[in-house]
Amino acid sequence: MRLNDAVPKEGSQKRPRRVGRGIAAGQGASCGFGMRGQKSRSGRPTRPGFEGGQMPLYRRLPKLKHFPLVNRKTYTVINVSDLASLAANSEVTLSSLIEAGIVTSDDGPLKVLGDGEIGVPLQVKAAAFTSAARAKIEAAKGTCELPEA
């Protein structure tokens, strides 16, 4: 038999520490919590994240800059001025713009921005339009269509 073979019987439990029962027990009077202060009081622990009244880290962080939006929508953006070179009454979609070489990468659904001027009527099908872009396309006798979703 070795010392590491001497283990408690299966299902046995260790006695709980009885504090505050006199000096002989080793946990008398202050029960191992010291003399005074927040950590010696009853109901002692503070909540997780508490920093003594200072604004805690989990409340400071979102106020700082450069925190990205979670699940942010990304669009393939194009300006109205880029559509001016297309033929009149043509249908404009993301795939047709990629084929024409006006847009080089598919970064998500198409969004039309209102920078520039347009003089030809176009049938534009995009996921989103700015109000200026919609006004300029419709002023040129074109149409703005949102996909059915």
Rank of each mutant, 00 (worst) to 15 (best):
I102F: 02
R60F: 03
R44D: 10
I98T: 07
V112T: 03
I102S: 01
R17H: 07
G20E: 07
P16M: 10
L3Y: 13
T93F: 04
L3T: 13
R134D: 10
L146S: 02
L64T: 08
F33E: 06
A6S: 15
T143A: 12
R72L: 05
G49W: 09
A88Y: 03
R2N: 15
G20V: 07
C31W: 01
R44S: 14
T46K: 13
G26R: 06
T46S: 14
L94M: 04
G53M: 04
R44W: 09
L146G: 04
E51M: 13
G28R: 12
V112S: 02
G22T: 10
S42A: 12
R18T: 08
K136W: 06
G34W: 12
A132R: 12
N71W: 03
L86H: 08
L146R: 08
G119H: 09
G43L: 13
V92P: 02
R44A: 15
P8Q: 14
G28Q: 11
T93Y: 04
H66T: 00
S40P: 07
M1H: 08
D115L: 10
G26N: 08
I102K: 02
G37S: 13
P68E: 05
N71G: 06
N71P: 00
V77K: 04
K136P: 05
M35T: 15
N89S: 04
D106V: 09
V92A: 02
R36D: 15
